Computed example of a mutant assay.
Amino acid sequence: MNVFYFTEQPYPDAWNPEATSLRVTLPNSECDPSVMADLYARYFDEWMLADELGFDLMVNEHHATATCLSSVAGVTLSILARQTKRARLLTLGYPIANRLDPVRIAEELAMIDVISHGRLEMGFVRGVPYELGVTQKSAVGMTDRFWEAHDLILKALSTRDGPFNWQGKHFQARNVNVWPRPYQDPHPPVWISGRSRSNIRDIASRGHVFATFLSGKQTAGMFDYYREVAAELGHATPSADRFAYLGIVAVADTHEKAMQRARILVNYLRTSALVAEPFDNPPGYMSAADSARMMRANGKRTAKSASGKAVDVHSGSIEELIDAGAMFVGTPDEVYEQIAAFDDDVGGLGNLLMMGHAASLSHADTVDNLTLFGKEVLPRLKQRSASRITVSRELEQAGT
């Protein structure tokens, strides 16, 4: 199992409990650049530690918000490409449907892949609905725009015989000829996140890595559907490395200390949905069926627990979130057992996206969280995956 350390690089000083929106409308006068400069330095130090401990690294981007000051993932990735030594570098992701020029995205990603000597993992996302308010794009036709951008980026990265012309519905480009070409041939691996069946079908049909965030026990059904689509299309049975899951992790040498950290980290979930209502669900972003489901759920994002109970990710108790698999909390032994049980539930998890820092968790707590996991949990997870692969190969050989 590969474990990617993740933080959104928040600016917690602006998280006023009485705020009605931490996104889009929050004025940037709430951010002190000198404070944020120190935070950036701290976050890069923590990423460097994670690299040394054997983690891979994940970066995302959001816009006009205090919850995530990684507003240009390419900048962060470029620095990490030069500073880190061994970690795979995942962006999950680049909101390609919102960007004006997919060819420029291809150029950015190719440079990062070359600088890192081929350690880039490309994660493409539609982008969250409320950030359409800070772009020039409409939500109508966003999915079509996403897949056309996807196709253009991959063609730009994989073409080797000189310029080509692209005249699509949403994008037009002449003399596309990416220099330098990516280090990985034909291009770095592609990841895409999602939850809906239509989205999963699109991802599975292309064989990309499918990632889902905080979906708890219902993740098993999503992974199973990916496998069903692959079988339906005649593809090889997807290996565990095609699946990724993001959960929040709080580990400490005692259960009580881990719960103290979890009570800080969970504030990310309590506040991440604070967005001004006009930007919450722009017309056209969701399909009619998905919009109907959202209205029936009264806007709640749920994760199913082991008992089948629907847990509100934004307001559920820490104990409920642990039971649902949205959080992994406890001593190294407890966290290992929780992740191992989740791995079994979903039929094999190749990539754990570990949100090991969020909200106002201190540098000291983050370092301890990373160090304990890296030294006492990560090796066991890797050994578990290696053992699973060995058993699978033995069964295949016995079957022949």
Rank of each mutant, 00 (worst) to 15 (best):
E18S: 14
R23M: 14
P27M: 07
P27L: 06
N28L: 08
V35A: 14
L39C: 08
G54Q: 12
D56T: 12
D56F: 09
N60M: 14
L69D: 04
A73Y: 05
V75A: 15
T76F: 07
S78E: 06
T84N: 02
T91R: 07
Y94G: 04
P95V: 13
N98Q: 15
D101I: 11
E107H: 04
M111E: 08
V114R: 09
H117G: 03
L120Y: 10
L120W: 01
E121S: 02
L132G: 01
M142E: 01
H150T: 10
L152P: 03
N175T: 04
P180E: 09
R181G: 10
Q184A: 09
R195F: 14
S198C: 10
I203L: 06
F210Q: 09
F210R: 03
E228H: 06
A236M: 11
A244Y: 03
Y245Q: 11
V251W: 02
Q260Y: 05
R270P: 09
L274F: 14
R293A: 12
R296D: 10
N298T: 10
G299W: 08
K300C: 09
K304Q: 13
K309V: 12
V311L: 03
I318W: 00
E320G: 07
E320D: 11
L321A: 05
D323A: 09
G325D: 09
M327F: 12
T331E: 06
D333T: 12
D333V: 13
E334K: 05
Y336I: 12
I339P: 03
A340P: 00
A340V: 07
A341C: 05
D343E: 12
M355D: 06
A358V: 01
A358E: 07
L372V: 11
K382I: 13
S385Y: 12
I389V: 14
L395Q: 15
G399W: 13
